[in-house]
Design a binder for these strands. Structure first.
Lengths: 194, 194
DNA sequence: GTCTATAATTTGATAGAC
DNA sequence: GTCTATCAAATTATAGAC
């Protein structure tokens, strides 16, 4: 989203994503998406036959865009905090600019009530984002030789803190609560290492 | 919930809570609650005129029960990690036993699509839980004399990690991901302090 | 208190014209 | 591709009998 496409297919994904990220999967409708795009709901069905199809397509595009924005795990400063700060900055961007949750954090909360195809995409987001974080840590002096289990633990904790932080900040209407999470990342811990 | 009351009023709150915590506020209906309780949906409306009333009542009871279970912030071991572990244990309980989210973590994700009365209760949960954590830290040697802002930062981070951890663990179908968050709490940091 | 019955609206989805 | 029109089901909520 946020690249304001002029083609209908792109706009549908843009607005559907925005609606899911603000209200959740179960709170958005074909008519709502159609209205935002400026078409009729039947047109949305033309591109995405079922709601599960639309939800999965939105999640897939979101994950691809997110991972692409993260870029090469090995790039950037050599400190272990660098990739963790990168994750924070990326999440902060969407949260502070539009007041939106991470799409897959939202889907993850609703996971038990989602169609399987959508739930699978949400799981894929976390798997890939955890993998990126582990690779980024392993590529740095601090991470070399560390057991996989420890890298995974730090990765999961970092991402969990970001997801939960978005929830708390939005709920309490104070986005600075999220920004403060970066001050000492779960890996000042890591950054404080050897 | 989980105390299996025999009165209808209590059962309604029990099942409504379970439904919200598994699927979300927008994915449960009066009929679903009624069916689980063994009454008709009109009976649920008798106790809670609107869905917002029911949602707010569920959240209020949940928060009161949660804070009561936390108990006296000053009680327990003198280490700063102790209250943080207590928070983790409490969250772990419901997650591993029933595979359920924290009610207010779920509501917090959906916050933008909730009726104001329900959104207010979700915010109250986080306010009170943050306050409890700050008080618990301040009551320990590590916390004495620390600036409020720092106590708040640790409290928010701890709770954020738990909420996000529940989301990730449930989404990936691996509850051990949540358990591992306790290994080194955001406050081994704190525990490692003077 | 709990029920039956029902109103009013919204939802996901389809058929078929253009 | 996009539309109009429509269906069947589900939703929140209310009225009124018992």
């Amino acid at each position: 989203m946020s690249r304001s496409e002029s083609d209908v297919a792109g706009k549908i994904l843009d607005h559907a994503e925005a609606l899911v990220r603000t209200q959740g999967y179960n709170a958005f409708s074909f008519r709502e998406v159609a209205k935002a795009v400026g078409v009729k709901s039947a047109t949305v069905h033309y591109y995405h036959p079922t709601k599960a199809d639309l939800g999965a397509a939105v999640a897939r595009r979101y994950t691809d865009r997110f991972l692409k924005a993260l870029g090469d795990p090995a790039a950037g400063p050599a400190e272990a905090v660098a990739p963790l700060r990168r994750l924070h900055a990326l999440a902060s961007d969407a949260l502070t600019r539009d007041g939106m949750m991470c799409l897959c954090g939202m889907l993850g909360a609703e996971i038990a009530g989602l169609p399987p195809a959508v739930a699978d995409e949400a799981a894929a987001f976390f798997r890939r984002t955890i993998d990126w974080t582990m690779a980024a840590l392993a590529a740095r002096p601090w991470g070399r030789g560390r057991p996989e289990a420890e890298l995974r633990r730090v990765a999961v904790k970092t991402i969990a803190t970001l997801e939960g932080g978005m929830i708390i900040a939005r709920t309490m209407g104070d986005l600075s609560l999220f920004e403060d999470l970066a001050a000492d990342n779960p890996a000042t811990e890591a950054g404080a290492g050897p």
